[in-house]
Design a protein around this nucleic acid. Structure first.
Lengths: 229, 229
DNA sequence: CCTACCCTGTGGTCCGACCACACAGCTACA
DNA sequence: TGTAGCTGTGTGGTCGGACCACAGGGTAGG
């Protein structure tokens, strides 16, 4: 076993046993090295991996914010993995879109079937209000659009699916933007998207699960067809 | 920007531009350090991250297998991320099970709707044959079970969903095993699971998409209920 | 022609050092 | 006495250099 893996196993064990908790801190790199009988560079490689996995956040200096703080941030690593594997061209964009379709339509159905607090829907509504601004550039619009879709996924109450959705949107963001010029008429498309978003929200609020799911699926499929992706 | 991030961006750019391909190799750590004007330890930290992300595989020695070879292995990083975040207890097991339910029932429906080559189903059938061996321990049985479910997910033809499924199964493997003692009668449960597997495969082969999806969902829900997870 | 050796290049590991940073506590001044 | 500023200390960030183990390929010897 490589030395840096010692650190990974140690940390995973400490997490599982409750010796390390969110907000807690890893021992310093020098201390960890001494405890495990390895060198600081090996410890550093492990901390890098943990950072890439979204388990710790490192910062220099002193005080409670400094050092390697335990966090729970599954979104950034998922995004990074997706981005890198999209770059290798061994992860077809079609599969990503299909996954979006599945996760988002499920989320909409699930959200429609839940009792939602008023403020849960409020976030999504405010995003839609901001998207009504006709002065938005395609990039600004798309960022809000992504936030809206991610918010919908969050309404289903499944943190894993919400995290995957967030990562998917981040990973394909630039691909989608690059396809905007393919649209015959961006402004007309935006008008259509706005209306579809409102319909989706109405269906969710009304508890129409099947309709909400179908609207979301049609919404996504329609955009990708129009953008020829 | 931290120095090791220079390497990550460099590699991602080279992948996207086609300068790096699967099977290709990264420049040596010393060469990379010199090209980017940074030190070897910084390069090593980046290579570690890439390795953790499943983008490269490193090996010592010389020859075509040595060095940092570009691979496309999204499963191991996804598994690692899930494992670590399950360990933090900020990723509820219920959400993982729900995700399994969604992805697997979708895969079954999708697989039933596709034209499957004979050898695609053969792998799954052979797994079922091996599971008929009544001398299997719960652990051996469960490993074959996981392989069978992953094979089903693969039949849908979506590499992303198949990868996520594989990771989910790996990440929850030990949790499921730990729950086996909760079962009132392991042997009886195994008999039931075997029969359900056969039914699922029949439905897929027969193109009964809806039935295949429902059977899978019932199969998973039934097990988790019996194991009180 | 074949075998055994050595050379070379790879990652794996370590040491020791210095830097930048941020907070905490002390000190000197008003 | 209060406060502003300085300094100490511990953190991660980076570096250069060194040595090791490993695996393949070239070469010298049989």
């Amino acid at each position: 076993m490589k030395n840096y893996e010692l650190v990974l196993h140690r940390v995973e064990g400490d997490l599982a046993a409750g010796r390390l908790r969110i907000g807690g801190r890893l021992p310093g790199e020098r201390a960890l090295a001494e405890q495990l009988g390895i060198s600081r560079p090996s410890v550093r490689e492990a901390v890098r991996v943990l950072e890439a996995m979204g388990v710790v956040r490192t910062a220099t200096g002193s005080g409670p914010e400094a050092g390697a703080v335990i966090v729970a941030e599954p979104v950034s690593p998922l995004t990074a993995v997706l981005r890198l594997h999209l770059a290798t061209n061994h992860l077809p964009m079609g599969d990503v879109v299909q996954t979006r379709l599945l996760l988002e339509s499920w989320s909409a159905r699930e959200a429609a079937g839940r009792e939602l607090a008023a403020n849960e829907l409020k976030v999504a509504e405010e995003l839609l209000d901001r998207m009504d601004n006709t002065g938005l550039s395609p990039e600004e619009f798309h960022l809000l659009d992504a936030e809206f879709h991610v918010a919908l996924a969050g309404l289903a109450g499944n943190v894993l699916i919400a995290a995957v959705m967030t990562s998917l949107r981040s990973a394909i963001h630039e691909y989608v933007l690059a396809a905007v010029p393919n649209l015959p008429d961006w402004e007309a498309t935006a008008v259509g998207l706005r209306a579809e978003h409102r319909e989706i929200l109405v269906a969710i609020r009304g508890g129409e699960a099947e309709r909400a799911g179908e609207l979301v699926a049609a919404h996504i499929r329609g955009f990708y067809r129009a953008a020829q992706l």
